[in-house]
Nucleic acid binder design. Structure first.
Length: 427
RNA sequence: GGAGAGGUGGCCGAGUGGUUGAAGGCGCCGGUCUCGAAAACCGGUAUACCCGCAAGGGUAUCGCGGGUUCGAAUCCCGCUCUCUCCGCCA
């Protein structure tokens, strides 16, 4: 959420920053509502002050055994009604302002490349060479099906399109990869491992920025109004909701594996084959809660931690800096990591690392106290996939496939899988 | 799902209509004392909003929302959350 103070102070700046994302900020409306709101508050406060004064006087009279003067009581009764009216006005104005603010995305950092579509994203570096095989490379949907480690048909039978099941070596590979990633981040990169609820309340979704704007991409349990998380970022963002973290408690680094649920309504028809885009997938997510001063540096390190995963797996990748129009709703700056996969011959987005600055902190009201006795300030939050499993599995299968239809397991995973090759018939 | 109890400041805990933002204690910060520390003593210690250049002033907040009243932490109603017991259950 953007701060109304900033909008009040420099509406033109905010308008232009939003424009770089292709968003129109209704600044004039906001400013009008804001000034009306402040006026209503002012008047209400004044009347309440009067009433408090009168009531206190009555209290003193009563203490001395005297009656309250009739005319004062009558007058205050009227004042009370005026206060009610002003309070209702204030509440309405508050709600209108709030609902507009909830729909506005974060402002991009200064150095984010300007641009309205993904065409303007910039490749900032590449690691490794895209693998080319000396035999016809199969896409994973063929390869995995032939091996018997992914069953698309039966996934559809259970849950509909874009669901799948894994078995045997495939299921073990995914479990091993998750465990290895969690160990890497928690043991070597300094993150605290979390186990989290994957069903959350409505206000939790608001705090992270998924509601109200992106309700159509979420699954929901109507009866209890619980929502299935699209990423672990959602519950982690809200861990410290409405709290003031004491001095010395930042930075905090977290890592968690959760299933992620996305309806992908908007993407109907895209990537329909294989497991690249599905309704349920596993993801290892890294998350940081940091001092605002440090968030730009923290983003670099977050990205480096995600890159480390690719490097150790021996997956060639490139890092993209997303342009203003392509960064996600709560993000001020985002780098994507795309890994090369030899079968579908594509760069697959396996990680997205974002600095959300104080955007989520404002929504979720997460603050910290820089020093004992000082005023609370909003924290900065960052998140990054470390990594999304299906696309890593795709890349491992497609890049490491052999001419005989088997797949070599990356060395770092072998202690976790307990096997170093998936035979051509591995289900 | 059934029955009961309860939600007060960072924590514990008092408070059933009138200077209660809220006693007391703990914790924390500063000071005195000390070579230093502890103890003791003294002082301070919520958040948000509004007006103001500032100094300062005002308002709100005792789970949330509504009601009664000149006035509500205190009374009434609804909701919510937590705990205990029973039931169910991996």
């Amino acid at each position: 959420m953007l701060s109304i103070e900033q909008i009040r102070r420099d509406p033109e700046f905010v308008r232009q920053a939003l424009a770089t994302r292709g968003e129109e900020g209704p600044m004039d409306e906001l400013l009008t509502l804001d000034s009306q709101r402040r006026q209503a508050i002012s008047q209400g406060d004044e009347l309440r002050a009067r009433r408090n004064q009168a009531s206190r006087a009555i209290g003193q009279l009563r203490a001395q055994g005297e009656e309250a003067p009739e005319d004062v009581v009558l007058e205050m009764r009227e004042v009370g009604q005026e206060i009610d009216v002003l309070e209702r006005q204030t509440r309405e104005l508050d709600e209108r302002i709030h609902s507009i603010l909830l729909e506005l995305p974060n402002l991009p950092r200064e150095d984010v490349p300007r641009g309205l579509s993904e065409e303007e994203n910039i490749v900032v570096r590449q690691w490794g060479e895209p693998k080319s095989l000396d035999f016809p490379a199969k896409p994973h949907w063929d390869l995995a099906e032939e091996m018997g480690i992914i069953d698309f048909q039966r996934g559809v039978k259970l849950s509909g399109s874009r669901f799948y099941t894994m078995s045997g070596y495939g299921a073990k590979l995914e479990r091993a990869t998750i465990a290895w990633m969690l160990d890497l981040h928690s043991r070597e990169h300094g993150y605290t491992e979390l186990m989290l609820p994957i069903l959350v309340r409505r206000e939790v979704m608001e705090g992270s920025g998924n509601l109200p704007k992106f309700a159509d991409n979420l699954y929901r349990d109507e009866e209890d109004d619980l929502w299935l998380i699209p990423t672990a970022e959602v519950p982690i963002t809200n861990l410290y909701r409405d709290e003031i973290l004491p001095p010395g408690s930042l930075p905090r680094y977290y890592v968690a594996q959760t299933p992620c649920f996305r309806r992908e309504k908007t993407a109907a028809g895209r990537d329909t084959r294989g497991i690249k885009r599905v309704h349920q997938f596993n993801k290892v997510e890294m998350y940081k809660i940091v001092d605002p001063e440090t968030s730009d540096d923290e983003l670099d390190r977050l990205l480096a931690d995600a890159e480390d995963v690719c490097q150790r797996l021996g997956l060639a990748y490139r890092v993209l800096q997303l342009c203003t129009g392509d960064i996600s709703f709560p993000s001020a700056e985002t780098f994507d990591i795309e890994i090369w996969s030899a079968g579908c011959e594509e760069w697959l987005e396996a990680s997205s690392c974002s600095n959300c600055t104080d955007f989520q902190a404002r929504r979720a009201n997460i603050r910290y106290r820089p020093a004992a006795g000082s005023r609370p300030e909003f924290v900065h939050t960052l998140n990054g996939s470390g990594l999304a499993l299906p696309r890593v599995i795709i890349a491992i299968l497609e890049n490491n496939q052999q001419a005989d239809g088997s797949v070599i397991i990356p060395e770092v995973l072998r202690p976790y899988t307990g096997f170093d090759i998936i035979p051509a018939s591995g289900g």
